[in-house]
Design a protein around this nucleic acid. Structure first.
Lengths: 199, 199
DNA sequence: TAATAATGAACGAACGTTCGTTCAAGTAAG
DNA sequence: CTTACTTGAACGAACGTTCGTTCATTATTA
């Protein structure tokens, strides 16, 4: 591999500019209400040039989904920590809910989910990262059970789903509906603890 | 009010036809990907005639949202029953999750939610019915607490939100991702009981 | 006959994408 | 170091469609 030329750097920068513009549009007006002309204008670029960097509008969304996907890594890592399972779970729930609460993240994943229902390739990106999260979370719960600190549930993986969904809901109420995060987290934590942790 | 004339009946029927066609389109291809021509063709009606019955495409979505809203009534009623709170909650959770699992319901509410983020009037419809559901559910939990059968939580209304979100998630996994409903319900029930019911 | 439901052509605007072209940056030969 | 040559980023007009909506016209009902 050669060192990146000036042109490569300029290209990378353009791609970033365009993706950022696309994200702005998708978040502000929705995926289908955002036109290529709009994206081009926001990026300060011609419409035609978009196609020198991305093969289609769908491709842009896919790439955005990919980026979103990438930054769940620290939370996966968090779930592997060696502290007592209930402690790790608490910390994770708070951190990840806070992460999800970002309105941009929130609206983007709504747009992406909507699109994923009809677009298989986008659905796959989404599914992969979610499965990783579920696997890690249910691994943690299993450890908690084995160490005698958590209750056995009929289906650990399904339990992990339920927890994730609560976090998404909490994030929505904070990020979109404007409820205060702290009390939301208090209740969420209490609920999860009550359900899972042996006293 | 006069008794409905033949014309009124015909009109009502047309409206139903058109709305049904719109629902089919919205579910199959999404709201923004479904054109008025498509709706007209599905309904077996001319494009222009759509506007004799609905003032706009948005209006159609609003009316559909209104109908969806209407049929949560039996579940609200269910929450008022006089049986022990944990029993009522169990029955409600199962019945309502099953109701939500219908793919049409599921996709429609995704489309409506997506739209509601940017369209205030549609958001309001949605919010109203959800608030009613939350109020009823948290009423039930409060009764459960007073009768000593349920655990006190930091915020009852927030707890109701969490439960509702779990049900929505379970419904999604059944209705969209095709997981079997029964095991999903088993885990969900166990989780809710573990969290709320004193043993 | 007066009112209104139904039609489908027509409207202008917007859509995602492609086009031929221009021109600065990168490479190679002298 | 300069020159000739190649590459591909950038442009913006134009493509063919489709969009939601309007409107004059025709058919049906009261």
């Amino acid at each position: 591999m050669q060192p990146p030329t000036k042109r490569d750097q300029a290209n990378a920068k353009r791609r970033r500019q365009i993706l950022e513009a696309a994200v702005m549009g998708f978040v502000e007006n929705g995926y289908h209400q955002t036109g290529m002309r709009d994206i081009a204008a926001r990026a300060g670029v011609s419409t035609g040039n978009l196609y020198n960097h991305f093969s289609s509008k769908t491709d842009m969304l896919a790439e955005i989904a990919e980026i979103e996907r990438a930054d769940i890594a620290p939370f996966l890592e968090m779930l592997q920590r060696d502290d007592p399972a209930p402690v790790v779970l608490d910390a994770f729930a708070k951190a990840y809910t806070r992460h999800l609460s970002d309105p941009v993240t929130l609206i983007l994943s709504l747009e992406i989910t909507s699109e994923a229902i009809r677009q298989t390739d986008i659905a796959n990106l989404f599914t992969d990262s979610r499965n990783a999260m579920i696997a890690a979370l249910s691994g943690l719960i299993e450890r908690g059970v084995q160490e005698g600190q958590m209750r056995q549930m009929p289906d650990t993986s399904e339990t992990a789903h339920l927890i994730l969904e609560m976090m998404e809901g909490t994030a929505f109420r904070h990020g979109i509906e404007g409820h205060k995060l702290k009390p939301l987290l208090t209740t969420q934590t209490a609920f999860i603890r009550a359900a899972l942790v042996v006293s």
